[in-house]
Amino acid sequence: MIDNMPLFGQKLKSGKFVVTSEITPPKGNDISSVLNISDSLKGWVDAINITDNNRAVMRMSPLALGKILADTGHNVIMQMTCRDRNRLAIQSDLLGANTMGIDSICLMTGDHTTKGDHPGAKPVYDLDSVQLLSMVKKLTQGYDFSGNQLEGTPHFTVGVVSNTDISQKMQMMKLKKKAEMGVDFIQTQAVYDLDQFKEFVESVKHLGIPIIAGIIPLKSAKMARFMNNNIPGIKIGDDIICRLENAKDPVYEGLAISAETINEIRDICNGVHIMPIGKSLNTVNLLEMAGFSPE
């Protein structure tokens, strides 16, 4: 079985620590800056996670960019939200992606259309993320949603996203439902509070699913405060905010904080997912600071 598993999936299964990073497709057909970023990541990351109209802002399809990056030798994790496609469209995109060499996916509900740059668009949400997982499971068993047999069965390494605040009981219940559907990795919301993260890891240990910790380097105290107030599940302590406030170079300080976080959680999770908002080229600096070297 392991033979036809995706490379990224194989590494995950082997228990080795994985590093992934995120690329947001361009709004337009100029992929030069995206290619600069992906080139810089070569050897440093095990897979590149490509967002799907994230924040409901219209961009190039992750399927198209995924194919381009796969062709340049990257392992790609294609994100797929429930917002823009019904069950037919999702399945046909997944089959297409798989056939073109994209065999890892990360599934999520997706921010509501009203939060993005096409607020009048019809939000689809034909399936929710649990139902989407169940449909993917069927595909990997050789059947479509309606039970029709497929001509060729796709294989996917399947990830889901999760908050790490275990006091959010409904969120944790939903994660449990997702786990029941068969999940290969859990990618978490950005980690800043180590105790919260440890509690989370402890509480989901019994599920036996590899956990990839989200890392978003902070760029300023202002950004930290904004995230505390506006991003669910984020808890950035005063000590961190203080460090950023007093730093001569807050961007560097933010990277240093992230590097420390990575080293503190390394032993209790299975990987990190770096989301350098707007500063993709800093990913390599961060990995270097955290003691990684290119393969």
Partner: peptide
């Protein structure tokens, strides 16, 4: 979003 299996992450 009409979600039937629990809340979204938002």
């Amino acid at each position: 979003k009409g979600l039937l299996n629990g809340p979204c992450g938002g």
